[in-house]
Design a protein around this nucleic acid. Structure first.
Lengths: 362, 362
DNA sequence: ATGAAAGCGCTAACAC
DNA sequence: GTGTTAGCGCTTTCAT
């Protein structure tokens, strides 16, 4: 057998080899080839291509030129092995979350992360951690050193993911928090403050019989939003127990609104823990022939597209989802670089629309 | 300096080293250690752990046990370098798409892919290919051999991405197609057939003045949907040019509906190229005091959550977004394995709801 | 400033 | 069936 170009022993070619779209080293120049073409050693080439010192300007020039001409791109795997840096970070998404981390949330976070990563040369790998089998994969992924760091979207209190994540020695940054845990690094939205603004807005509009549809109480964000609600409502001595829990989905939001209406027919405002559920609430209120905002004011949370498109449009607490992703990625990069950044709480603010205008109408 | 445990020359420790959360080989057992503990050679250990032949049951047992006890997980990077298989596939998402590949679409595709990948040990890496700088990254990513294959969400006709993708020698599978290109491997929904069903439904309900809001005509899916519309409408000799193009966003959908209404005040049905735009159309029709479905029937496309939640709920063409992702990933895995699967067109079907019921009312 | 050479942790060809 | 060994393509130390 003739020597292979790379000098490696070749497997005896099987019949099937020719069938495969073999994308071999053929067209992938190696450092060695660049060095050879530039007439220098591999180490020199390596140094030049990494902007390292100890290369004469002349050679550096030649090497860069050679690399350019050959279309050289370093083999990421080999580099990773040599440097013990993988060049990728993983985003862990607790799967099967009914609605909280549903569509718009997820995509926006990803976009935020991607824009942050764009400047680095880190690549984003995604891990949808469904329960059961999925967590085994995650465990292996983390132990197999195939990422330099981990980002995690907020988990529920008893998610088995929590322990898996906690047991890795990779840097981990959270988006949101988990009840009963205080991660070292996280970014979060000011859920409590935002919810307080919402409730104060309702109070400011003169409403005094305020109910709330809260998200699942094993979610830290839901609890924080409820606390914000309590902050405002308790401060003026009103009851804080006109509440109903729902699982962040549209359907369960509708159910909760119905329940509240049955229990407190005289309610004149409702603060809802997510826009999706708020949209459902609007629907129920309409069916029950309560006019919004005249009879009942509604404030949501998130400021998704649905808030603008709802009828009437939804007053809601806006949280900067993309920024959350962006900041999370930036923070992770800093941690990977050995820094120890402080947690970040991003501000939320009220967006006033038709479902709860600023001044009482009529 | 004392020998390092791994025998590698150590860099002289700098001051900053101690600051960093060094996650060193310390707790990461290597194959060598497993082999040693089991009292066999590295190759034996490797064979056993990969279920390869030529290992006596006894040793195999011992090796597996040792690995278990040490919590051994192979170093993915090293394995990748040795096998020339990376163990990951990349999903390329054309970024800045106004609405077509917006929120729900993107997440659902990803979920479909993730479930398909779960059984393999491939990992998903994400590449949001914004224009400009982003495409450079993509080029490098593809050339640096950091993935075993590529999945691409349908691009627009003149997207610079097209050329980049075409120039890679990695296996590529598309979701959807691109105008003027016929990829070797792709999955797609039966857009044309679904649109035809929609139009036929309208005709079957007795409507004869049918308009259509079509998506951007540089998107293959939009064109296919328009063709399906034409298939049905032209067959009965009705005009097929009551159409207005919109960019898949809610706002532009609203604008298009307004335009159509101005141009053809007597229209009695409209087929809309996406649910988002259809929701906007409903809104406009309501504002214009056209009753849906009595005055104007509306059929959408996609069957997103918004279709059920709209008021009236939206008759729409359902396309299996998750399956699209799932099949795309399965197909890619087959291509990576050297097979050459045929393209797949997944069926679409009509979901009849209030905005265009089956029988004329009244 | 430069190049030779020793690895990174794993797989696979080869000889026994 | 088993161990030895030569790489995968890159980085980095060390000697020059």
């Amino acid at each position: 057998m003739p020597d292979s170009p790379t000098g490696r022993r070749q497997p005896s070619g099987s019949a099937s080899d020719s069938l495969r779209p073999r994308r071999d080293a053929r067209s992938m120049p190696s450092l060695e080839e660049v060095a050879h073409r530039a007439g220098v050693s591999r180490s020199a080439a390596s140094r030049a291509l990494n902007n390292a010192p100890h290369v004469s300007p002349l050679k550096r020039e030649a090497i860069l030129k050679a690399a350019e001409e050959l279309g050289y791109v370093p083999n990421a795997t080999a580099r990773a092995l040599a440097t013990n840096k993988v060049g990728s970070v993983v985003l862990v998404v607790p799967n099967e979350e009914p609605g909280f981390f549903a569509d718009p949330f997820f995509s926006q976070i990803v976009v935020g992360i991607a824009t942050a990563l764009e400047k680095s040369d880190l690549v984003l790998t995604l891990m949808l951690a469904s329960s059961g089998e999925g967590s085994d994969r995650l465990k292996r992924l983390l132990r197999s050193r195939s990422a330099d760091g981990v980002m995690v979207l907020a988990t529920r209190k008893d998610d088995p993911l929590n322990d898996i994540i906690e047991s890795t020695d990779l840097p981990v940054v959270f988006c949101g928090r988990t009840l009963g845990r205080e991660p070292r690094w996280y970014v979060d939205a000011d859920n409590r403050g935002g919810a307080r603004l919402a409730a104060e807005h309702l109070l400011g509009a003169g409403r005094r019989r305020i109910a709330s549809i809260v998200g699942p109480m094993d979610s830290q964000a839901s609890v924080a939003r409820y606390q914000g609600f309590v902050d405002a409502v308790a401060a003026v001595g009103l009851p804080t127990d006109w509440i109903e829990e729902a699982d962040f989905t549209y359907d369960d939001g509708a159910r909760a609104m119905t329940t509240l209406l049955d229990r407190h027919p005289d309610l004149d405002a409702v603060f809802v823990g997510s826009d999706n559920m708020a949209a459902a609430a609007l629907r129920v209120l309409k069916a029950r022939e309560r006019s919004v905002p005249d009879d009942v004011m509604v404030v949501g949370f998130d400021d998704l597209a649905v808030a603008q498109q709802a009828e009437p449009s939804l007053t809601t607490v806006s949280q900067p989802i993309r920024s959350l992703g962006h900041e999370m990625a930036l923070m992770l990069m800093r941690v990977i670089d050995g820094e120890s950044p402080s947690p970040i709480i991003l501000p939320t603010h009220l967006v006033v629309r038709e479902s709860a205008p600023s001044a009482e109408r009529g």
